[in-house]
Amino acid sequence: MDAEQARMDAEQDQLAIKTAATAIRQKVARSWIRPVSASSGLKCTIQVRLMSDGTVIDAVVVTSSGDAIFDRSAENAVHRASPLPVPADKELAAKEFKSFKFLFDPDRSR
């Protein structure tokens, strides 16, 4: 393959990944019902596995906030957002979005 072609393909892939990551972030944020009782400073990390069409296989807390209600709200948000808007290119979706993490950190927005 020509290097120029490779560069363009790579750039296109990067754009598709970035676009998908933004769309996924937005869909999960819209699905996240933040617990009313949550104190500030809570954050948790969720490991997700997806099918190539974006359907959530599982969403598991890997770093707990220490608050079961907060953790569950984050897991639920990922499930409610399923299927996630992964890139239409199945190969790329499988490569980049088969397994990744969400960091739920509401304090970052303040």
Binding site: Q14, I17, F102
Partner: peptide
């Protein structure tokens, strides 16, 4: 190109900072 594609080595993390009430 190699530098542009860190995701092929490290797993992606998407940050969620906003939710709905």
């Amino acid at each position: 190109v190699g530098f542009y594609m860190p995701s092929s080595h490290a797993e992606l993390t998407i940050e969620i900072t906003e939710g709905i009430e």
